[in-house]
Design a binder for these strands. Structure first.
Length: 338
DNA sequence: TTGTGTTTTACGACCTCC
DNA sequence: GGAGGTCGTAAAACACAA
């Protein structure tokens, strides 16, 4: 139900997620979705086809689910039910586990280090405790959804701000080595609670879920209210929770280490950028000489582009692998990562 | 408070390697 | 073909001056 609660809250942030509201009270542990129904709902391959959907729409709800699980209160953030085959870290569904906005979402939207959830949530108001009101997005008025079925990835991208603790640990790891093994990535992801339970809700799958709702006659009605911002499970008897749960935990998980991988990619890019800046500062460009008039017309000579300065990184980065740089600057043989 | 510049996540495109 | 690399970029989050 908490999943459903979040998913429905999500409408305001991702208005194009056309969903039906409706009342149905089904026990989550009893749901069975026939493959034919699923096929009808999708009309397309399941996991293999994710990239085909307008990607990137990451409803905050699922994000909250994902990171909330990491924030030290997994069971409270998401009441998993029967699909225990999804992930070994599932927690049994419990109706009373739905957190309030003030406490639960605080944790869900501010992933913190493992440990006492309550204190961690308070401490992990990252960065610098200047985070916006975590319930703010819930109050945003819904946007018109017509015509917005097709979205670009970036348009709807939802960015999670890592906590200071997460950044610190990642920086420490980066300082130790610019390239880490996949095992270490997974360890970091688990330790920092980054991507272990991250979900990847895509627009097409939400639509598929709604079609499945329709196919099963699970139409929702509008007007379901919440218990204030507390969200303490007031939706329990109004939402087809089992479908939300099913779609969320069965189809959206990302690999464990993806966020760590991306963070390291971005961190390396940042370092390259810094090094490039330093290089430019060390070699100040002489003031351009006054250009004499160019009398000679004719075809312009093409000046070959200088080689990418990325190679300078090899010598400047302690602990980096001795990879061979490819034409695009990519490390062709980053054996460490394997 | 607001405008603006910078930093931080996230991902597409394209690459090489296995 | 999949994984992971760089590069470029979008957009959110943040910092800060006016």
């Amino acid at each position: 139900m908490y999943v459903s609660y979040l998913l429905d809250k999500d409408v305001s942030m991702y208005p194009s997620s056309v969903r039906h509201s409706g009342g149905l009270n089904l026990a989550p542990q009893n749901f069975v979705i026939p493959g034919a129904v699923l096929a009808a709902a999708y009309g397309a391959p399941l996991r293999e086809d994710w990239n085909g959907y307008a990607p990137g729409a990451r409803p905050a709800a699922a994000n909250a689910v994902a990171h909330g699980l990491n924030g030290g209160s997994p069971a409270a953030a998401m009441g998993y039910s029967s699909p225990a085959d999804y992930h070994p870290h599932h927690h049994p569904h419990h109706p009373a586990a739905a957190p309030s906005c003030a406490s639960g979402l605080l944790q869900t939207l501010n992933p913190g280090p493992p440990g006492p959830a309550a204190t961690a949530a308070a401490e992990q108001l990252s960065p610098g405790g200047q985070r916006r009101n975590l319930c703010e997005w819930m109050r945003k008025p819904a946007q018109p959804s017509l015509g917005s079925q097709v979205k670009t990835r970036t348009k709807d991208k939802y960015r999670v701000v890592y906590t200071d603790h997460q950044r610190l640990e990642l920086e420490k790891e980066f300082h130790y080595s610019r390239y880490i093994t996949i095992r270490r990535k997974a360890e970091l992801a688990a330790t920092l609670g980054l991507s272990e339970r991250q979900v990847r809700p895509l627009q097409g799958l939400w639509t598929a879920r709604d079609r499945l709702c329709e196919g099963l006659g699970l139409l929702r009605s509008e007007g379901t209210s919440f218990a204030g911002e507390g969200g303490t499970g007031a939706r329990a008897e109004h939402s087809p929770f089992f479908l939300d749960t099913f779609f969320t935990i069965s189809f959206f998980p990302l690999p464990f280490h993806v966020q760590v991988k991306i963070w390291f990619q971005n961190r390396r890019a940042k370092e390259r950028k810094i090094n490039k800046k330093k290089l430019q500062q060390q070699q100040p460009q002489p003031p351009p000489a006054p250009q004499p008039p160019q009398p000679q017309p004719g075809p312009l000579r093409s000046v070959p582009e200088p080689l990418s300065p990325v190679s300078s990184l090899q010598g400047s980065v302690p602990g980096s692998v001795a990879g061979v740089l490819g034409p695009t600057g990519g490390v062709l043989n980053p054996t460490v990562t394997q």
